[in-house]
Protein backbone atom coordinates (compact mmCIF):
# COMPACT_ATOMS: atom_id res chain seq x y z
CA UNK A 1 0.00 0.00 0.00
CA UNK A 2 2.27 2.73 -1.24
CA UNK A 3 1.03 6.22 -0.93
CA UNK A 4 1.37 8.35 -3.99
CA UNK A 5 3.98 11.09 -3.73
CA UNK A 6 2.57 14.32 -2.44
CA UNK A 7 -0.23 12.71 -0.48
CA UNK A 8 -1.06 14.27 2.92
CA UNK A 9 1.00 11.79 4.96
CA UNK A 10 4.16 13.03 3.27
CA UNK A 11 4.17 16.54 4.58
CA UNK A 12 5.66 15.81 8.04
CA UNK A 13 8.60 14.20 6.30
CA UNK A 14 8.97 17.19 4.03
CA UNK A 15 8.92 19.49 7.03
CA UNK A 16 11.66 17.49 8.75
CA UNK A 17 13.79 17.37 5.61
CA UNK A 18 13.35 21.07 4.97
CA UNK A 19 14.46 21.85 8.52
CA UNK A 20 17.46 19.53 8.13
CA UNK A 21 18.41 21.10 4.81
CA UNK A 22 18.01 24.56 6.29
CA UNK A 23 20.39 23.67 9.12
CA UNK A 24 22.87 22.18 6.67
CA UNK A 25 22.81 25.29 4.52
CA UNK A 26 23.11 27.90 7.30
CA UNK A 27 26.95 27.74 7.39
CA UNK A 28 27.10 28.26 3.63
CA UNK A 29 24.82 31.25 3.84
CA UNK A 30 26.68 32.76 6.77
CA UNK A 31 30.04 32.64 5.05
CA UNK A 32 28.75 33.91 1.70
CA UNK A 33 26.90 36.71 3.44
CA UNK A 34 30.03 37.70 5.34
CA UNK A 35 32.13 37.65 2.19
CA UNK A 36 29.76 40.16 0.59
CA UNK A 37 29.45 42.44 3.61
CA UNK A 38 30.93 45.87 3.09
CA UNK A 39 30.46 47.23 6.60
CA UNK A 40 32.28 46.10 9.72
CA UNK A 41 31.68 42.38 9.99
CA UNK A 42 32.00 42.51 13.77
CA UNK A 43 29.18 45.00 14.24
CA UNK A 44 26.43 43.90 16.61
CA UNK A 45 23.88 42.68 15.73
CA UNK A 46 25.17 40.87 12.64
CA UNK A 47 23.01 41.62 9.63
CA UNK A 48 21.22 38.71 8.03
CA UNK A 49 21.22 40.59 4.76
CA UNK A 50 24.27 42.83 4.23
CA UNK A 51 23.35 46.52 4.11
CA UNK A 52 25.96 47.42 1.56
CA UNK A 53 26.78 44.24 -0.35
CA UNK A 54 29.69 44.31 -2.77
CA UNK A 55 32.25 42.02 -4.31
CA UNK A 56 35.37 43.99 -3.45
CA UNK A 57 36.40 41.56 -0.72
CA UNK A 58 37.20 39.19 -3.56
CA UNK A 59 39.41 41.83 -5.19
CA UNK A 60 41.14 42.46 -1.87
CA UNK A 61 41.97 38.83 -1.27
CA UNK A 62 43.52 38.55 -4.71
CA UNK A 63 46.04 41.26 -3.82
CA UNK A 64 46.44 40.73 -0.08
CA UNK A 65 48.04 37.33 -0.59
CA UNK A 66 49.78 35.73 -3.55
CA UNK A 67 46.50 34.13 -4.53
CA UNK A 68 47.54 33.40 -8.10
CA UNK A 69 50.64 31.60 -6.89
CA UNK A 70 48.70 29.43 -4.41
CA UNK A 71 46.18 28.66 -7.12
CA UNK A 72 48.94 27.69 -9.54
CA UNK A 73 50.53 25.37 -6.96
CA UNK A 74 47.21 23.76 -6.17
CA UNK A 75 46.35 23.29 -9.82
CA UNK A 76 49.72 21.79 -10.70
CA UNK A 77 49.73 19.41 -7.75
CA UNK A 78 46.18 18.33 -8.49
CA UNK A 79 46.88 17.88 -12.20
CA UNK A 80 49.96 15.78 -11.41
CA UNK A 81 48.01 13.67 -8.95
CA UNK A 82 45.17 13.09 -11.41
CA UNK A 83 47.41 12.27 -14.37
CA UNK A 84 49.72 10.04 -12.35
CA UNK A 85 46.99 8.20 -10.49
CA UNK A 86 45.05 7.59 -13.68
CA UNK A 87 48.10 6.07 -15.38
CA UNK A 88 49.19 3.95 -12.43
CA UNK A 89 45.71 2.81 -11.41
CA UNK A 90 44.76 1.80 -14.92
CA UNK A 91 47.98 -0.17 -15.28
CA UNK A 92 47.61 -1.84 -11.90
CA UNK A 93 43.92 -2.54 -12.43
CA UNK A 94 44.67 -4.18 -15.76
CA UNK A 95 47.51 -6.24 -14.31
CA UNK A 96 45.19 -7.55 -11.61
CA UNK A 97 42.75 -8.89 -14.21
CA UNK A 98 45.49 -11.19 -15.53
CA UNK A 99 46.32 -14.51 -13.98
CA UNK A 100 49.77 -14.73 -12.56
CA UNK A 101 51.33 -16.40 -9.56
CA UNK A 102 50.91 -14.39 -6.38
CA UNK A 103 47.92 -12.41 -7.66
CA UNK A 104 45.76 -13.30 -4.71
CA UNK A 105 48.55 -12.36 -2.40
CA UNK A 106 48.85 -8.91 -3.96
CA UNK A 107 45.09 -8.34 -3.77
CA UNK A 108 45.13 -9.16 -0.06
CA UNK A 109 48.13 -6.91 0.41
CA UNK A 110 46.36 -4.01 -1.30
CA UNK A 111 43.17 -4.54 0.64
CA UNK A 112 45.04 -4.50 3.91
CA UNK A 113 46.96 -1.39 2.82
CA UNK A 114 43.58 0.29 2.57
CA UNK A 115 43.28 -0.04 6.35
CA UNK A 116 46.28 2.19 6.95
CA UNK A 117 45.14 5.80 7.04
CA UNK A 118 47.63 8.16 5.52
CA UNK A 119 47.57 10.28 8.67
CA UNK A 120 49.10 7.38 10.60
CA UNK A 121 52.20 7.47 8.40
CA UNK A 122 53.14 11.13 8.43
CA UNK A 123 56.45 10.90 10.28
CA UNK A 124 58.01 8.18 8.08
CA UNK A 125 56.31 9.62 4.99
CA UNK A 126 58.13 12.85 5.70
CA UNK A 127 61.41 11.00 6.13
CA UNK A 128 60.84 8.97 2.96
CA UNK A 129 60.05 12.08 0.97
CA UNK A 130 63.07 13.91 2.26
CA UNK A 131 65.19 10.86 1.45
CA UNK A 132 63.81 10.94 -2.10
CA UNK A 133 64.80 14.61 -2.22
CA UNK A 134 61.38 15.88 -3.27
CA UNK A 135 60.39 17.77 -0.13
CA UNK A 136 59.09 21.22 -0.92
CA UNK A 137 58.31 20.35 -4.55
CA UNK A 138 55.08 19.75 -6.43
CA UNK A 139 56.02 16.12 -7.02
CA UNK A 140 56.60 15.55 -3.32
CA UNK A 141 53.12 16.78 -2.49
CA UNK A 142 51.47 14.75 -5.24
CA UNK A 143 53.46 11.54 -4.69
CA UNK A 144 51.38 9.81 -1.98
CA UNK A 145 48.23 10.43 -4.02
CA UNK A 146 49.66 8.97 -7.21
CA UNK A 147 48.05 5.64 -6.61
CA UNK A 148 44.81 4.93 -4.83
CA UNK A 149 43.66 1.45 -3.95
CA UNK A 150 39.92 2.04 -4.32
CA UNK A 151 40.41 3.26 -7.86
CA UNK A 152 42.56 0.25 -8.74
CA UNK A 153 39.71 -2.01 -7.72
CA UNK A 154 37.17 0.13 -9.55
CA UNK A 155 39.24 -0.24 -12.72
CA UNK A 156 39.72 -3.95 -12.11
CA UNK A 157 35.98 -4.47 -11.82
CA UNK A 158 35.32 -2.33 -14.85
CA UNK A 159 37.89 -4.20 -16.99
CA UNK A 160 36.57 -7.57 -15.87
CA UNK A 161 33.13 -6.57 -17.13
CA UNK A 162 34.51 -6.28 -20.67
CA UNK A 163 33.86 -9.51 -22.63
CA UNK A 164 37.14 -11.50 -22.85
CA UNK A 165 36.39 -12.37 -26.45
CA UNK A 166 36.83 -8.72 -27.37
CA UNK A 167 40.29 -8.66 -25.84
CA UNK A 168 41.25 -11.95 -27.46
CA UNK A 169 40.12 -10.67 -30.84
CA UNK A 170 42.25 -7.58 -30.40
CA UNK A 171 45.20 -9.73 -29.43
CA UNK A 172 44.75 -11.85 -32.53
CA UNK A 173 44.77 -8.63 -34.53
CA UNK A 174 48.20 -8.03 -33.08
CA UNK A 175 47.48 -5.13 -30.74
CA UNK A 176 50.03 -4.65 -27.95
CA UNK A 177 48.95 -4.82 -24.33
CA UNK A 178 49.04 -1.10 -23.69
CA UNK A 179 47.10 -0.52 -26.90
CA UNK A 180 44.47 -3.03 -25.79
CA UNK A 181 44.09 -0.98 -22.63
CA UNK A 182 43.90 2.41 -24.32
CA UNK A 183 41.92 1.41 -27.42
CA UNK A 184 39.49 -1.18 -26.09
CA UNK A 185 39.23 -1.18 -22.32
CA UNK A 186 39.39 2.51 -21.48
CA UNK A 187 36.65 3.63 -23.89
CA UNK A 188 34.41 1.10 -22.15
CA UNK A 189 35.35 2.30 -18.65
CA UNK A 190 34.54 5.98 -18.82
CA UNK A 191 32.60 5.97 -15.61
CA UNK A 192 35.56 4.42 -13.77
CA UNK A 193 37.80 7.12 -15.22
CA UNK A 194 35.41 9.83 -14.08
CA UNK A 195 35.33 8.35 -10.58
CA UNK A 196 39.11 8.26 -10.42
CA UNK A 197 39.49 11.83 -11.66
CA UNK A 198 36.90 13.21 -9.26
CA UNK A 199 38.10 11.38 -6.17
CA UNK A 200 41.71 12.30 -6.83
CA UNK A 201 40.73 15.89 -7.49
CA UNK A 202 38.84 16.19 -4.21
CA UNK A 203 41.55 14.49 -2.17
CA UNK A 204 44.36 16.47 -3.67
CA UNK A 205 42.58 19.82 -3.73
CA UNK A 206 41.48 19.51 -0.11
CA UNK A 207 44.57 17.89 1.33
CA UNK A 208 46.11 19.94 4.11
CA UNK A 209 48.15 17.88 6.56
CA UNK A 210 50.54 16.47 3.98
CA UNK A 211 51.36 19.79 2.24
CA UNK A 212 51.70 21.34 5.70
CA UNK A 213 54.48 18.85 6.39
CA UNK A 214 56.04 18.55 2.96
CA UNK A 215 56.17 22.24 2.06
CA UNK A 216 58.45 24.78 3.67
CA UNK A 217 58.88 27.74 1.33
CA UNK A 218 56.07 30.32 1.15
CA UNK A 219 55.83 30.34 -2.64
CA UNK A 220 55.23 26.60 -2.85
CA UNK A 221 52.13 26.74 -0.65
CA UNK A 222 48.86 25.35 -1.90
CA UNK A 223 45.47 26.95 -1.33
CA UNK A 224 44.60 25.17 1.95
CA UNK A 225 47.96 26.21 3.40
CA UNK A 226 47.44 29.75 2.15
CA UNK A 227 44.05 29.77 3.81
CA UNK A 228 45.42 28.65 7.17
CA UNK A 229 48.24 31.17 6.87
CA UNK A 230 45.89 33.99 5.95
CA UNK A 231 43.79 33.12 8.98
CA UNK A 232 46.76 33.29 11.33
CA UNK A 233 48.25 36.48 9.86
CA UNK A 234 45.18 38.68 9.63
CA UNK A 235 42.16 37.14 11.17
CA UNK A 236 40.78 40.39 12.51
CA UNK A 237 40.44 42.43 9.39
CA UNK A 238 37.72 42.21 6.81
CA UNK A 239 35.45 39.88 4.96
CA UNK A 240 38.40 39.09 2.67
CA UNK A 241 39.11 35.86 4.57
CA UNK A 242 35.60 34.66 3.86
CA UNK A 243 35.88 35.69 0.24
CA UNK A 244 38.98 33.48 0.15
CA UNK A 245 37.03 30.62 1.69
CA UNK A 246 34.28 30.94 -0.91
CA UNK A 247 36.78 31.10 -3.78
CA UNK A 248 38.51 27.96 -2.54
CA UNK A 249 35.26 26.05 -2.07
CA UNK A 250 33.84 26.81 -5.50
CA UNK A 251 35.91 24.32 -7.55
CA UNK A 252 35.18 21.41 -5.22
CA UNK A 253 31.47 22.20 -5.12
CA UNK A 254 31.31 22.67 -8.88
CA UNK A 255 33.00 19.34 -9.56
CA UNK A 256 30.77 17.61 -7.06
CA UNK A 257 27.57 19.05 -8.50
CA UNK A 258 28.65 18.22 -12.04
CA UNK A 259 29.49 14.62 -11.31
CA UNK A 260 27.56 13.72 -8.21
CA UNK A 261 26.78 10.21 -9.33
CA UNK A 262 30.36 9.21 -10.08
CA UNK A 263 31.59 10.79 -6.89
CA UNK A 264 29.12 8.98 -4.66
CA UNK A 265 29.68 5.75 -6.54
CA UNK A 266 33.39 6.02 -5.96
CA UNK A 267 33.00 6.65 -2.26
CA UNK A 268 30.57 3.81 -1.71
CA UNK A 269 32.19 1.25 -4.00
CA UNK A 270 34.62 0.52 -1.19
CA UNK A 271 31.57 -0.19 0.94
CA UNK A 272 29.69 -2.50 -1.34
CA UNK A 273 32.58 -4.83 -1.95
CA UNK A 274 32.33 -7.82 0.37
Amino acid sequence: MRRSPGSPAHWPRHVIMIVVCFLMLVPFYWVIKTSLTGENIYAWPPRIIPVDPHLFNYVDVWYMIPFARYLLNSVIVTAMAIAGSLLFNVAAGYALTRHFPGRRWIVVLLLSCMLIPFQATIIPAYLVTSWLGVLDTWLGVALPLLSTIICIFIFKASFEAVPPSLIDAARVDGLGEWRIVTRILLPLSKSAIATNVILTFIWSWNSFLWPLIAIRSPDMQTLPLGLARFLSVMEDTTGALFAFVVLVLIPGLAIFLMAQKEFIRGLTSGATKG
Binding site: K190, A194, M258, A259, E262
Partner: peptide, 12 residues
Protein backbone atom coordinates in the same frame (compact mmCIF):
# COMPACT_ATOMS: atom_id res chain seq x y z
CA UNK B 1 24.76 9.87 -20.54
CA UNK B 2 28.51 9.80 -20.79
CA UNK B 3 28.49 12.10 -23.76
CA UNK B 4 26.55 14.65 -21.75
CA UNK B 5 29.07 14.36 -18.93
CA UNK B 6 32.01 14.78 -21.27
CA UNK B 7 30.26 17.76 -22.64
CA UNK B 8 29.85 19.37 -19.25
CA UNK B 9 33.35 18.49 -18.18
CA UNK B 10 34.83 20.00 -21.28
CA UNK B 11 32.43 22.89 -21.64
CA UNK B 12 32.67 24.25 -18.11
Amino acid sequence: RWRALAHRFVAV
